[in-house]
Nucleic acid binder design. Structure first.
Lengths: 133, 133
DNA sequence: CCGTTTTTAGTAATGATTACTATTTTTAAA
DNA sequence: TTTAAAAATAGTAATCATTACTAAAAACGG
């Protein structure tokens, strides 16, 4: 199972890397079809899964329905808006402390990994739910 | 939308409360059918969702496929076995420190809530994957 | 080149969940 | 109690994300 170089895989990866929006497979299907109108949804799914398995991209199994993908493989965290479903990166220096503690907890539990995610309204949805828009 | 008292809801809740296994809706459907053979899967889903919305039970939206339910509404964390899919409660006193930090992080981010979950092989699967069973 | 491996497009199938509907049960008030 | 409105039910159909299948095409390595 060696990787072949195909235009499909190349376009999927380069489009994903352009985005900060953590798209779903279907989002990427829509975007990639502008460059490769014949591509099939299965090809998008397969390539995303393969690249995630190879560590080239990240697969976000957030607690919603659809999985999301992230071209940034550095360890970082995400916040999902419960209103519009958008997923944004989260940055906070105190998360380093959390990581340190949890890495000890992992050892004590005999666990392999931990997952943290946040829920919070994004700016626009905050306004919308307050009736300001 | 007031709650009516139905035998279906009562049995679903009491069976869930007997279990420590964090069953899926389908698991509960199987169990409850022993007492109420006519119950339909939709009724199980609907009641679980309603009770979760009312805070009577917990709905675990873990990062796998199926959602799971927990009769214990106290705040606690879970570990999922990547091999057999089992979900177990996690206890560790240092998680209180993590909660404290994350509650500050929530404020700083303007977020509403956080979710932590662990992945780790359970005893039996550890043996199985080591080829000992 | 050329045989082998990998990938593809297109389609079908799956699995979890939700929606629909006609009927029944529960509720609360008269 | 009777009774009308509200809520819930069983059974079924529909939906949505994802995975599986297949025959044809493309990429690979020698």
């Amino acid at each position: 199972m060696k990787f072949s170089r195909t235009s499909q895989r190349r376009v999927i990866l380069s489009e994903l890397r352009k985005l900060k929006s953590h798209p779903t497979a279907d989002d990427l299907y829509t975007i990639v079809r502008e460059k490769l109108p014949q591509i099939s949804l299965g090809t998008v799914y397969r390539n995303l899964d393969q690249m995630a398995a190879a560590g080239i991209i990240q697969k976000l199994e957030l607690s919603g329905r659809q999985k999301r993908f992230d071209g940034n493989v550095e360890k970082h965290y995400h916040m999902r808006c419960p209103h519009c479903g958008a997923v944004k990166d989260v940055e906070n220096e105190r998360l380093a402390d959390v990581e340190n503690i949890l890495s000890d907890v992992l050892d004590e539990l005999g666990a392999d990994s931990f997952w943290i995610e946040f829920t919070g309204h994004c700016k626009d949805c905050n306004k919308a739910e307050a009736g300001l828009v």
